[in-house]
Simulated assay, not measured.
Amino acid sequence: MPGPAAWSLFLQRLTAHRHYWRSSAIGSVLEPVLFLAAMGLVLGSLVDRGPGVPGGVGYLAFLAPGLLVAAAMQTATGESSYPVLGAIKWDRTYEALLATPARPVDLVAGHLLYVAFRVTTSAAAFLLVLLAFGAARSPLVVLTVPVALLTGLAFAAPVTALAARLEEDAAFAALQRFLLVPMFLFSGTFFPVEQLPAVLRGIAYATPLWHGVTLARDLALGTAEAGPALLHAGYLLLWTAAGAVLAARALTRRLVR
């Protein structure tokens, strides 16, 4: 369980968030919703006139849970890149906290608590829009919010570890361009990865986003099975745990003297 220092950092981030929550809502909720409307309704009408997606599912119902999880990835990585490097190098918030009884593991826990709050609230808002669009086929669609949370943490923890090792922020642009955008496009959000060549398909299966998208879609469509669902969730938890350990080690090496 997170200790008092972790909760203190979480409350500090939450207090700061009150001053810019409107602008953050645009990136984490409004943009994905507009994307859903454009792709799901406009492009989706064209897809549904053709062969459609496997299983005879409407394209909107196929796309919506994938976008919900992909938006969680974007929110989590955004909160774990520049803000973490800033807390280390520019604001020195982490250095100030470590002057108290707080430990690096408390910093990681507090940060992930805040990411969990951001992802959960954004995913819940997206879910309401998804329901309003009529894109759900099962009551299990409510479980897409915890799936988005797991996926967000699976990205937040490793990106935090990366940010803790950097001296400059140029690597974040490369992360977005060469990892996040390809994952967004080719991890099953917009079309089944089975349509990819075998090599790219194997890479897609290894990404946390594919596991999150697949699990959320199975839940939203009512096709989830216990065994595969547990495997997807376990894979996401593995990324979270490994990333958190690496992040704590990186913060220890950089800030503890």
Rank of each mutant, 00 (worst) to 15 (best):
L41G: 01
V33Q: 00
I203F: 15
Y94G: 07
R22W: 12
L180D: 13
Q74N: 13
G188V: 09
L149P: 05
D106G: 05
T15W: 12
H232S: 10
V145F: 05
Y59G: 01
G78Q: 08
R18N: 04
S187G: 05
V69S: 03
T120C: 09
R254K: 14
L246D: 09
L63H: 04
W239L: 00
P158D: 05
Y20W: 02
S28I: 06
G27P: 09
A226W: 15
A125V: 11
L14E: 04
I203N: 09
P139I: 09
V145I: 11
L237Q: 06
A70P: 01
V245C: 06
H17T: 13
L140A: 15
A164H: 07
V213I: 09
L9Q: 01
W239K: 01
E79T: 03
P146V: 14
A241N: 02
V33N: 00
R177S: 12
G222Q: 05
H17W: 15
A206D: 10
S122I: 02
P54C: 10
A132F: 08
F172Y: 15
Q74K: 02
L200K: 02
M1A: 12
E31G: 10
D48S: 01
L219M: 08
A248S: 15
L97I: 07
L149D: 08
A174V: 15
G3L: 09
R201P: 06
A156C: 11
G66K: 02
W239M: 07
A250D: 00
L153G: 03
F117H: 15
T120K: 14
E167A: 13
S28T: 14
E194Q: 07
T144M: 03
L200N: 09
G78P: 03
L231W: 13
V213F: 02
A242R: 04
R217Q: 03
P83Y: 06
T189I: 15
E31Q: 13
P146N: 12
V29E: 08
R257L: 09
F62V: 13
R137S: 08
L237E: 07
L107S: 10
F35G: 04
L140Y: 12
P51H: 10
L9E: 01
T240M: 11
V57Q: 09
P158N: 06
